[in-house]
Amino acid sequence: MRLTLAVHSISQMDFGSKTQLEGTRLQIYVEELRRCILQDRRLQSVDLEIARPGESCRAGYVFDIIEPRAKEPGLGADFPGILGPVTPVGQGVTHVLRGAAVTVVDGGQPGGELGYESRRGGVSKILEMSGEAAKRSSYSDLQHLVMVPRAHPDIERHAVLNALRVASCRAAVFLAQTALSQLPDSTLDFELESPKSGNGNLPRVAYIGQIHGHQHGTESDEHILYGANTRGMMPTPLHPN
């Protein structure tokens, strides 16, 4: 199984009249992206802004930050279990916009300006693009498309979180698809022989990882692994790709 990441470097992000990738400049047509996100009828609107390195900008509370990626057509689903069917995607070619990010702000978190502490003990997350905090963040040197999706008021909280996840993945694919017809700046190949073929020079190792602690519980539509919430999941082998 061989996976190739086709990496396209992004140094500039702007809004414009067309969504396209020109060299290292990513241009986004806002209305086209908005229509893509609002396919989800649970959302009534979405605010879109761009945050650049060094700007006096703070965004929060951050729901997630995703690197834009899209599969070559016919080589697997984008974000299987969330946007597409559950299918292996550790093969073929995936286009990556390195230096860009989709940052989703959860505008509906309880707590408001007083801050938010989740039921799992976590605290609210803030994106800083300048100042001392930015120097200590691995995200402050990225070009951010900042999204604030707003759900209809009658949508239950767990469904709102599900809608935010879907919106973030849709936007990531939307941006990365601009690179499908272009040559990448570099490529990264990941290939692993099957266990049956063996390699006499390497030990046989299995890594056991707990992806979620069930003492916290999960929502019925919460995306943990391939779109599933892991309830009742048996031990499952995963290929490193």
Rank of each mutant, 00 (worst) to 15 (best):
F190H: 12
H212Q: 10
A206T: 14
V205Q: 07
V205R: 08
D189N: 13
T187E: 14
C169G: 03
S194N: 12
Q215A: 06
S186D: 08
A179D: 03
Q182G: 03
S181Q: 10
R204C: 00
R170Y: 01
L188H: 07
A179L: 06
S181D: 13
S194A: 14
G198M: 10
E222G: 08
K196W: 06
R165K: 10
I211E: 05
A206N: 11
S181C: 02
K196D: 09
L161N: 06
H223M: 08
A167M: 03
L202Q: 13
L192N: 08
N199E: 09
N201T: 12
T218D: 00
R170T: 06
C169W: 01
S197V: 14
Y207N: 02
H214T: 08
R204W: 06
P203N: 08
R165F: 01
E219D: 15
G198E: 09
S186T: 09
I208M: 05
E193M: 12
V205L: 12
T178P: 04
F190M: 14
P203I: 08
F190A: 09
N199P: 03
S220Q: 13
L202V: 13
R170F: 02
L175C: 06
N201H: 14
H212Y: 15
S197M: 05
V166E: 10
R165T: 11
L183A: 13
G217F: 05
G200V: 10
L180T: 02
Q182W: 04
E219L: 01
Q177I: 03
L180A: 03
R170L: 02
D185C: 01
P184Q: 09
S194G: 14
K196C: 07
E222F: 11
T178Y: 03
T187P: 02
P203E: 08
S197W: 03
D185V: 01
D221A: 07
L175A: 06
K196S: 08
P184R: 09
R170Q: 12
G217Q: 04
L202A: 15
S168H: 00
L180C: 04
T218H: 00
N162E: 15
E222T: 10
R204I: 00
S186M: 09
N199W: 09
A172C: 01
P195L: 04
P203M: 09
T187V: 15
H214R: 08
P203G: 07
L188M: 11
T187Q: 15
A171V: 00
R170I: 01
E191P: 02
